[in-house]
Design a binder for these strands. Structure first.
Lengths: 178, 178
DNA sequence: CGTTCTTCTGCAACTAGTTGCAGAAGAGGA
DNA sequence: TCCTCTTCTGCAACTAGTTGCAGAAGAACG
């Protein structure tokens, strides 16, 4: 039940149309909660139905017509509840770890190449995050609570990528001597 | 498309019935690829259909009757292919990061408690992994390739939990001064 | 022996996420 | 003006994962 809340958050930051949301998900929010435009349109419909958001009045409501949404008080309230709600962390889903375990059974042929490919991808992602940090969170932008929270979120992404880079580097080193 | 391969791996390690698999998923494999008994039964049916596994001959095949499965050569081959296949890492899905970002918009009321609760859960998980490491991977068990691979998988879990523990500790420290 | 409890398998119906495609609106060029 | 290309919205149909429940087999106990 996270997607509707992701959308509420994005809409509170800035009222948007479906496609604008999709683009923003491809960037910042999607870094830790991705969604396709399909999911987003469907969820916007549900949120409107539930009275959590509303479409800003458009001249001619019609198919193919751009619709801007904004959050209603009920939506903001729901988001506030959700922030404090108890919700256990979902168990990790790491296909690469699974593949490594399979490799222990059927042999690691071809696994090394996959590992270096992933290492490369994670290095790139890490670099991108660090760039964002340098650009959006200079020291003077770390004082208000909202800024600190946003920065902590980004740190989460950064440290997560660091974890992968380190783990993959180590794995390659350990398998390299075979 | 990871669940069938998770099941193949588990069955290669040891032929099992559906419920045995479920239990083993609750333990080791489920640490990075969880599944309910329902998913497992359905997938066993598909894998049998596809000729990747077969049920060991049972005296009286009937509903409610325990069925042991074993992997056929075609299943092993498929798993071998999968280990080397190119498959991009799925974007992270971390609801807690999302909630923190929402908190930056609607206020962090109640978030601290949730963070400490998660910190506690991740500490426990980390302790469990470290116990497994001490028990199953003493230094002399780290020489053959399969052992090294299995150990690397576990290290992945350990380092991932360490990441969460550190990030949460840091987040609490930074929000604590408010 | 019969009743009850647990184990094991599985169906049905749901929610969440993905993929392919199509139609309306508007911009831009011949 | 008409044609085409892009933008934006959305339907339909799929796969993956979850939840609730039920029926058969066998063990456990009177």
């Amino acid at each position: 039940m996270s997607l509707p809340h992701a959308i509420l958050t994005a809409l509170l930051e800035k009222p948007s149309s479906g496609l604008e949301l999709t683009r923003r998900f491809d960037k910042s929010i999607g870094y830790f909660w991705s969604a396709t435009h399909q999911q987003i349109y469907r969820e916007l419909g549900r949120l409107e139905q539930a009275g959590h958001i509303r479409a800003l009045p458009a001249p001619v409501p019609a198919r193919g017509q751009r619709k801007e949404y904004e959050v209603l008080p009920a939506g903001r309230a729901e988001l506030g509840m959700w922030v404090a709600r108890q919700e256990d962390p979902k168990p990790l889903r790491a296909a690469l770890l699974l593949r490594m375990r399979a490799a222990a059974v059927v042999g690691a042929t071809g696994l090394r190449a996959e590992l270096s490919r992933h290492l490369d991808l994670h290095r790139k992602q890490l670099a991108e995050y660090l760039e964002i940090e340098a650009r959006d969170f200079p020291p003077e932008r770390r004082h208000t609570e909202p800024d600190r929270l946003r920065h902590l979120v980004l740190r989460g992404g950064i440290d997560m990528e660091r974890f992968w880079v380190e783990w993959l580097t180590n794995a390659l080193a350990e398998l390299g001597t075979e």
